[in-house]
Structures are given as C-alpha cells and as structure tokens.
Design a protein around this nucleic acid. Sequence first.
DNA 1: CCTTGACCTTCCAGTGACTGGAACCCTTAT
DNA 2: ATAAGGGTTCCAGTCACTGGAAGGTCAAGG
Lengths: 128, 128
Amino acid sequence: MNIGDVAKRTAIPVKTIRYYEEIGLIRPLRDTNGYRAFRDKDLHKLAFLGRARALGFSIGDCRALMALYEDENRASADVKRLAQDHLHQIEDKIAQLRSMQATLNELVRACAGDSRPDCPILRDLASE
Amino acid sequence: MNIGDVAKRTAIPVKTIRYYEEIGLIRPLRDTNGYRAFRDKDLHKLAFLGRARALGFSIGDCRALMALYEDENRASADVKRLAQDHLHQIEDKIAQLRSMQATLNELVRACAGDSRPDCPILRDLASE
DNA sequence: CCTTGACCTTCCAGTGACTGGAACCCTTAT
DNA sequence: ATAAGGGTTCCAGTCACTGGAAGGTCAAGG
C-alpha cells in the first residue's frame, strides 16, 4: 500500500508518517520505483502510534511502548509504570491549567469589556 | 541594574530575558562596557510579561497585551476579548486532557502491573 | 504518443519559547 | 597577577511536526 492510502486508513498525515520513518518508528519496504510499500505490520504499528499519541504519550514513550508490545517477555508492571507516570504528568498539567482558568475567569468576569480604557485584567498583570 | 539582578528580582531566567530583548519585547539600555542596563520600566515590563506568561498567554498575546497596556486610548473590550479567547483555548485543552486522563485511568486500573506480559494497556493501543 | 493531474520522492527551513554550551570580555577582591 | 563570578555574542538543540520547492512516477484521456 502507498503512503497516501495509509494516511487515509490511519488518519495520520503523510508528512507525519514519513517523519516516523525518519526517526525509526517504522521501517516500510520500498517498491522498485522508490515508493514506500506498507505492509499490514506497518499499518498496525502506525495505528498503535496514533492511539498512543492521542493519549498524549511522547514519541519517546511511544517507542518504549512499542518495544514492550513486541517483547513477549515484558512485565505489565513496566507498561503500567509508564502509563502512570504519564497520567501524573497529565494531572499536573490539568491542575496548572485549572489554576490559570480560575484566575482568568475571575479577571474576565471583572472586566467591563466596553470602550473605556480601565481594565482589571491589565491592572492585575501590571500589579507590583 | 544588571541582568543577573533583574533575573533574581523578576524570577525570569537570564537566558529568557535576553531572548525577550532579541524578539523586541524589551529594550534595555547599554552601559559603556556593553552590559545591559535595566531601568524600572524594563523591570516593570518583565514582571508584566512574567505574569502574563504564567497565565499561559503566548508571546504574541503578551505583545498585544503590553501594547494595550501602553495605549491610553485602549478599549477594555479588546483586552477582554483576548483574555476570553485564551480562556477558551485553556478550556479546550483541559477537556482534551481530561479525556486522556479518563482513558488512562481506566487502563491503568485494569492493568495488573505484575511480572506477567498480559496487559490491557497494550491491548487497547493495539486494538483493531 | 503526449499531456494532465494526482501521486510519490528528497531536502531544507520554520514553528514556540526557550535552553545549553562555547568562546570570550569585564569587574572586583585577594 | 590571578581567580571567581559576573557579563557578552553566536550557534545548536529541543519537540513533533508542517510547509514548500524541485523533481520523479503512474494511470487515464485525447
């Protein structure tokens, strides 16, 4: 299968697929014309990558997850630890965003939003 | 004031301050020896930037916010719109992260996390 | 047979917001 | 005189793509 069809099937952009090959996440064969020739295995890997990325795993994590997936002797504890670490990072990020959200909500609420220059948002940002 | 002291007072790294000058957010004077000479105005601007960045505003937004701050004839509506747009982006991001969090939580919960290879996390990522 | 259009290829550069490091200059104290 | 601890510039790297240019390949239609 050619890259365009793979992109459609996996919903991963062509550019991204080429990038994943460049960094060694996949290793599609080549046709005699130089086109990448994707096998089921490659499609499967890309789908795996797509789902892992959708869960916010970094490329490094994806690499580790794929290695674990392909290792028959893996311990699920290793996978779980990876996922838990990532989960904690997500939780931290959410907490951070919620703090920003709370402050911004308050500032937006307090701002008249009219044609006058007086603005609590700018006052807050400029506060000593 | 020299850059090191400014960094301490504003809690913005030296490298970042130099970067902010490079992209034109601040314009400190120079001493005869070539050192940057920060005035109160620069400190004030950096503090403003620090707070805006802490609320998650992009550098572009910060530029716009500083311009509005310095514009006596601004309309608070412009500031409010900027803040509201940003707030929406934050809300979107939170929603996205919470969705990841929910899925990951479920997967982590389902994973034994022992020495056996069987793993619901990998099963999910590999699912057709 | 030729052209057209839709594919495919590689390579280079840019994104955002820094961050690290090398190589070098200035100042102050010993 | 020298050493420590500032400061300076410039270049490269981060992360995960994304855009664009220049060019090769293929199938269909005239």
